[in-house]
């Protein structure tokens, strides 16, 4: 649980996630403290990425609220919703870099679309190079996404997510598909960025080393009961959570007989 006394950055209340009549999760409630790394955990297919889509405004929930500060994202409309969304930075699972643009152009795009209109193209380029430098890709600014590795794509995606100095940073499976060293470097980068920007970071992952290394708080979703089954920092859950599936998951063990295996 977050111990921050300050007002939370994100509040999720009674969220119900469904695709048509198919229920994904319900009774999802949690708070994300400012400057913390919040992990959304759970087995494959439990609805982690769907929850993230509700948080970043891609899919409206069937019920419930997502509050950023005092503002309810899904109750807001038009300009108010756009204003909330401009405070987001999102790293997608597959990086989602625009394939026809160089890395620098990818990072400049949010600035062109939503940034300060007084900023010149040269200034945008300078800022993009600075952000690419921050993620260790200064030399790759003029390369296309198909000319770089998966790990570099993730870092470039992270640089793009930081382009508008977001208050809320959302990372969907940041270390998926990366080798252990790249994954570790990315974890360190996330912690470094959190410290530099003070952003509230929400991470969807089931990579155990990552979630223990970076998670300050978290929620564990269960595919069978379609409800969250645990709340707290991953390390704390590892030590004290007595739910057999969470226990087995965080220890990378096969759940005991009769306990669901996390998939539907």
């Amino acid at each position: 649980m977050s111990t921050s006394a300050a007002a939370p950055a994100i509040v999720v209340r009674g969220l119900r996630m469904a695709y048509g009549s198919k229920l994904i999760q319900e009774q999802v409630s949690f708070e994300v403290a400012k400057g913390s790394v919040f992990i959304i955990m759970g087995g494959s297919g439990c609805g982690k990425s769907t929850l993230l889509k509700h948080l970043i405004g891609l899919n409206p929930p069937a019920a419930g609220q997502v509050l950023y500060g005092e503002s309810d994202y899904w109750a807001a409309e038009g300009v108010a919703q756009d204003a909330i969304r401009r405070r987001f930075g999102v790293l997608f699972q597959g990086s989602a870099l625009f394939s026809t643009m160089t890395l620098a152009e990818n990072v400049m795009l949010p600035m062109k679309l939503n940034g300060d209109r007084r900023q010149t193209a040269a200034e945008q380029r300078e800022r993009a190079e600075e952000l690419l430098g921050l993620v260790g890709l200064a030399a790759a600014a003029d390369l296309l996404p198909n000319e770089i590795s998966g790990g570099m794509k993730k870092r470039a995606g992270l640089a793009r997510a930081l382009a508008l100095e977001p208050e809320y940073l959302f990372l969907d499976e940041p270390s998926a598909g990366l080798d252990p060293i790249s994954s570790r470097k990315l974890d360190e980068l996330i912690l470094d960025l959190r410290a530099r920007t003070g952003a509230a970071v929400v991470v969807v992952t089931h990579e155990l080393p990552s979630l223990f290394a970076i998670g300050d708080d978290g929620i564990f979703l269960d595919a069978e009961s379609k409800r969250p089954i645990a709340r707290g920092a991953p390390k704390q859950l590892l030590e004290s959570c007595d739910h057999p599936f969470v226990h087995a998951f965080l220890r990378r063990e096969v759940p005991p007989e009769g306990v669901n295996d996390g998939s539907e």
Binding site: K53, G57, L58, D82, V90, A96, S99, P110, L113, N114
Partner: peptide, 17 residues
Amino acid sequence: ATMQGNEEIDALKTLGV
């Protein structure tokens, strides 16, 4: 369709475009 699969369309939406 490729952009859809690569989440590029989602990325555009989160940029408010």
